[in-house]
Simulated scan of single mutants.
Amino acid sequence: MILLGHSLGGYIAAAYALKYPERVRHLVLADTWGFPERPAQSLQDKQPLPLWVRALATAMQPLNPLWAVRAAGPAGRWLVRRTRPDLALKFAPRLPHAEQLIPDYIYKCNAQTPSGESAFHALMIGFGWAKNPMVHRVGQLDPKLPITVMYGSRSWVDNTTGELLCQNRPNSKTYVQVLNGAGHHVYLDKPDLFNKYVIEACDRADATDSRTEKQVADESNCNGEINSTPSS
């Protein structure tokens, strides 16, 4: 299958491809999380936070990221609407009543048992870094497995995943696409480009069997070339 993962889903998709290489013929990583190693010196080390901030962070460390949504009960809908109005605005051109539907959808998803959040919390160290970064394992991926990497130029997620894959899989096919103007939600910020690159990944997977390895390898941009899309 062609397997696509976004954010934490990209980390899980890569782990799946490691465990079941015979089941994945093309891996698509959309603004994926958890690949680079945590920097030796973090921002907090350079600029120590006030004591009360560190105490609050320590007290909240055992909690899942969206605990406040569940703690708010029915008011969670209002909380989502107030804190993430940007998501509804992104859907508004394509979805009638997005300002009501999207916050409700997000609330109902996250008001349930937080299995995904718990998994993310268990895999994370510090603020947003993986305890076991995927960079240590990508060299074990099937060298014949092509990988498409997309990330938003304005995303908060570290954008070195494509470079790390190229360095650790120098003889494999890695296609890197930068979506200028997109944030972490690349599929929302630039849906037409996102769909275009997903379709290209599918076409590459379908074409591999009918072309020579050299022809396909020539399309790889692992030599430092990164395709960047212009902002619209």
Rank of each mutant, 00 (worst) to 15 (best):
N195G: 13
G183V: 13
T174K: 02
N180C: 07
D192T: 11
E200F: 12
D189A: 11
D189K: 05
N171Y: 09
P191K: 10
E200H: 12
T174Q: 03
Y187W: 06
K190H: 06
Y175D: 00
L179N: 01
T174N: 02
H185Y: 12
P191M: 09
N180F: 05
I199H: 11
V198T: 12
G181S: 07
A201E: 09
V198L: 15
Y175A: 00
Y175M: 02
N195D: 07
L188A: 07
S172C: 03
K196G: 06
N180K: 05
I199M: 10
V186A: 04
Y175T: 02
T174E: 04
G183L: 09
T174C: 03
K196E: 13
V176M: 01
D192H: 08
K173V: 15
G183I: 15
K190S: 00
G183T: 14
H184P: 08
L193T: 09
V176T: 15
L193W: 13
P191W: 14
D192P: 06
Q177G: 01
K173A: 07
P191S: 01
L179F: 09
F194I: 11
N171A: 10
H185G: 07
C202V: 15
A201F: 15
K190P: 02
Y197K: 07
H185T: 08
E200K: 08
H185W: 14
A182P: 05
K196H: 12
G183W: 11
V198H: 05
F194L: 03
Y187Q: 06
H184A: 05
S172N: 04
K173G: 11
H185F: 12
T174L: 01
S172P: 10
N195I: 15
N180M: 03
V186E: 00
C202K: 10
V198F: 14
I199K: 11
V198I: 15
V198M: 13
Y197L: 06
V176L: 02
N171S: 07
K190L: 01
C202M: 11
H185C: 12
V176P: 04
P191F: 12
P191G: 07
Y175I: 03
N195Y: 11
V176I: 14
K196W: 12
N195C: 15
L179P: 10
E200N: 12
D189C: 04
I199Q: 05
N195E: 08
L179M: 05
L193Q: 10
Y197E: 10
N180W: 06
G183Q: 10
K196F: 11
Q177C: 01
